[in-house]
């Protein structure tokens, strides 16, 4: 439990760093570290497939896409953030953490645990037989993403 809590604290810490750090490249890398920690948390919760997807896709592919975008738009550093934000963000975040902790402590054991049937079969059974429609939706979403990127990067006509 202590290791799991340490991993979760690291996850929140690196996510906040990704938001607060001024250098966008460092922010993207700390987001990748946060994904890596989340993947390890999934592995420790007996969810290896979700962990593998989180580490390989979110920590790998999405970080590469972010770094590519930062390299293609190198004027991103010129955007001025307002000065109040530097104080507002940590202040609100710390206040929320305190409220969050108090609420969770108050809720402890007040929500009744609903009965749930234990699962049978393997991950493949649940994914392919139980959530077949989700897979069709995933194929549609991937195709929609591919067509969106193709439409956004198409060559301009000469008349434009």
């Amino acid at each position: 439990m202590i290791v799991q809590t340490a991993l979760l604290v690291g996850l929140v810490l690196f996510s906040v760093l990704a938001i607060v750090l001024r250098d966008l490249l460092k922010a993207a890398i700390s987001l990748a570290v946060a994904s890596l920690l989340l993947g390890i948390v999934f592995f420790r919760m007996n969810a290896p497939y979700a962990g593998v997807f989180e580490i390989s896709v979110v920590a790998g592919l999405i970080t590469v896409l972010f770094i590519l975008t930062i390299a293609l738009t190198n004027a991103g550093e010129e955007v001025r953030e307002s000065r109040i934000v530097r104080w507002v963000f940590p202040l609100f975040f710390l206040a929320f953490i305190v409220i969050d902790a108090l609420v969770m402590k108050g809720l402890l054991q007040k929500i009744p645990a609903l009965p749930s049937a234990p699962e049978i079969g393997t991950f493949g059974d649940v994914l392919w037989k139980g959530r077949t429609l989700d897979l069709v939706g995933q194929i549609a979403v991937i195709l929609a993403g591919v067509f969106a990127v193709l439409a956004l990067f198409r060559k301009r006509d000469k008349h434009d």
Partner: peptide
């Protein structure tokens, strides 16, 4: 809730949706 397999299936779907969202939004 001891329903980890269903949760994993949902998270895998969520990650796939997230990736195509990221690709389209970064192109924008």
């Amino acid at each position: 809730r001891a329903n980890i397999l269903l949760a994993q299936a949902l998270v895998v779907t969520f990650i796939v949706v997230e990736v195509s969202l990221v690709a389209a939004a970064l192109a924008l």
